[in-house]
Design a protein around this nucleic acid. Sequence first.
DNA 1: CAAATATACCTAAAAATCTTATGCATAAGA
DNA 2: TCTTATGCATAAGATTTTTAGGTATATTTG
Lengths: 112, 112
Amino acid sequence: MSNSKLYKGSLNTIILKLLDEQGKMYGYEITQKVKLLTKGELKITEGALYPALHKLEAEGLLDVEVAKVDNRLRKYYKLTEQGEKETVNRLAELEEFIRSMQNLVNPDWSIN
Amino acid sequence: MSNSKLYKGSLNTIILKLLDEQGKMYGYEITQKVKLLTKGELKITEGALYPALHKLEAEGLLDVEVAKVDNRLRKYYKLTEQGEKETVNRLAELEEFIRSMQNLVNPDWSIN
DNA sequence: CAAATATACCTAAAAATCTTATGCATAAGA
DNA sequence: TCTTATGCATAAGATTTTTAGGTATATTTG
């Protein structure tokens, strides 16, 4: 959507956060979950998601587990131990960033 | 810094917002203002800022006015009429985005 | 006073990240 | 049966940023 360009750089953190609270998820599920949680505001495209998942796996932050449901493939991802630690750090950074942006965009916001 | 990658896509909106509330600013001033407002969290690099300013000008959202202070050049930018309208739209989008991110990252946030 | 830092502009190459456009395959719904 | 939904994937292109330079003047510091 028109906003989609704004979340550049935060996709990885969003993935980690979702896996942290959901335990394990597969790619397609993540796209739907984000769409739902943001009421359609954010749409994770598959061209961005799958490479991101592969990269996080390569970095040792995610583990994969392949499953077959209804004769269709699913790749479940979950956080590794290292992934859990990283998630804490990245979430803290993202929260700080969001606060900074709030403060820039609308300083009165925090008083709401 | 470590967070800097997170604000991808929002630089233009930040510029517009600052010009909206400050009236007119020059490039270097913008970098310092952002550093100040975010307590060093966000650092606008010049390699990103100047091309962004030139682009916004080319799009007709900004006007320039050159000045010489202490024998040094300054290029003051201010919003055009069209720029003011665009600022309203982009700010609304950015706020929506921030709300979405808050909801994803920390749903309890809004109750603070 | 010399050197470093701050102020002030700029650009180009590279890196990072995302969109768009495909491709393949199965299941479900119209 | 045709379209939509589910599920994976990659490649080319676009966008945006970092990094790394460049030029020049003013101020501060040792």
